[in-house]
Simulated assay, not measured.
Amino acid sequence: MTKTWFITGTSSGFGLLLTRRLLAAGDRVAATLRRPEVLDDLRAEYGDQLWVRRLDVTEPDSVREVIDAAFAELGTIDVIVNNAGYAVFTAVEEASDEQIRKVVDTNLIGSISVIRAALKHLRPQGHGRILQISTAGGQAAFPNFGFYHAAKWGIEGFCETAAREIAPFGIGLTIVEPGAAPTGFGAALDTAPIMPEYDAGPAGDTRRAIADGSFPLLNDPEKIAAALVTLVESEAVPLRLPLGPDAYEAIRTSLSSRLAEHDSHRETALSVVLDEFANR
């Protein structure tokens, strides 16, 4: 059965690959991006099957207007894919205030704005799926990605809460956590002047690994796009879906380490309870 998808950030990467795959399969796509002309070739090929609008997710009023228009003109929308993203690749002291704000505005507040605007329509509709594109760095952390992690860990916490709240309305939400893939996202990473104090440490090591290719891009972007389609078709609604061996291992290592540290503090954690609750 054909579906209608609403996807942000369709100019490149997963967003564009997913859009092409869905159109070829006969689905309808509401594609949003900051430069709509990028999709002129697809519009010429697929006509009314592809609905395109300019959208910068850092503009909340525009988010509401575009999502309202998509539902008004297309009727039912089955899947919302929150894919638009921006990252700055710097040590924690190196980035400018403007860069930090853009990371948070795009990846955290922008994603929240899309979900909230869509829920106004999905809730009375009585069904729908939200795929929040995160990253392995939504649960694990790497030097030079501190601000990206701040936004992605934040959106994962928001989505975990939202998933519980919206489940009674027949709306499913999955956080998708891809590993490294050659999508061009890495080449688009913003940077800042390097501080030698950080270049001699883990931040510099990560920079050099990416520059010399020893930080591998293991995963096939087409396979990741296909996995998203398969997820929706299966009707399974996992809260999180890691994609890629690097994502799986990085997240597992992070969770195991956090759990071990957490358990090591059990005695201290229990020691601060009020006396009247101590023996309950």
Results as ranks from 00 to 15, higher is better:
104 V>Q: 11
51 W>P: 08
175 I>L: 14
242 P>K: 00
26 G>S: 06
238 P>N: 09
128 G>H: 08
120 K>Q: 13
95 A>P: 00
146 G>Q: 09
250 A>T: 08
124 P>Y: 07
230 T>F: 03
158 F>K: 07
6 F>G: 01
75 G>F: 10
36 P>T: 08
63 V>A: 03
134 S>I: 04
135 T>Q: 02
74 L>D: 01
79 V>Y: 03
130 I>H: 03
230 T>S: 15
56 D>G: 09
152 K>Q: 09
239 L>E: 07
261 E>I: 04
250 A>V: 00
215 F>W: 15
161 T>M: 12
142 F>Q: 03
172 G>N: 06
135 T>H: 01
125 Q>Y: 05
33 L>M: 15
17 L>S: 00
44 A>Y: 03
280 R>T: 13
241 L>G: 04
215 F>Q: 04
100 I>A: 08
164 R>L: 14
34 R>E: 03
217 L>C: 02
56 D>K: 01
84 A>T: 08
200 A>T: 14
190 D>K: 14
174 T>R: 03
38 V>E: 12
241 L>E: 07
10 T>I: 09
197 E>N: 08
118 A>G: 09
259 L>V: 13
151 A>Q: 03
252 R>I: 02
239 L>V: 11
181 A>T: 12
120 K>R: 15
101 R>D: 12
164 R>D: 10
131 L>S: 07
276 E>M: 13
45 E>V: 03
264 S>C: 07
156 E>Q: 13
234 S>H: 13
176 V>Y: 06
125 Q>A: 11
234 S>A: 08
26 G>E: 00
88 V>W: 02
163 A>I: 06
170 G>I: 07
53 R>T: 02
269 A>Y: 12
201 G>Y: 01
41 D>F: 00
177 E>T: 08
35 R>C: 01
103 V>I: 12
229 V>Q: 05
168 P>C: 07
217 L>P: 07
240 R>G: 01
111 S>I: 01
240 R>D: 00
61 D>G: 12
71 F>M: 09
164 R>H: 13
47 G>Y: 09
118 A>V: 04
179 G>N: 10
201 G>Q: 13
81 V>T: 08
40 D>W: 00
70 A>R: 09
185 F>P: 03
69 A>Y: 06
19 T>R: 05
262 H>Y: 14
228 L>D: 02
73 E>F: 05
38 V>S: 11
27 D>P: 02
77 I>Y: 01
234 S>T: 13
48 D>R: 14
244 G>D: 09
42 L>T: 12
131 L>T: 00
55 L>G: 07
74 L>G: 00
71 F>P: 01
144 N>I: 05
105 D>P: 05
63 V>L: 03
35 R>V: 08
47 G>V: 04
224 I>P: 00
26 G>T: 11
182 P>L: 12
55 L>S: 07
58 T>K: 04
7 I>V: 13
140 A>T: 11
41 D>Y: 01
162 A>Y: 03
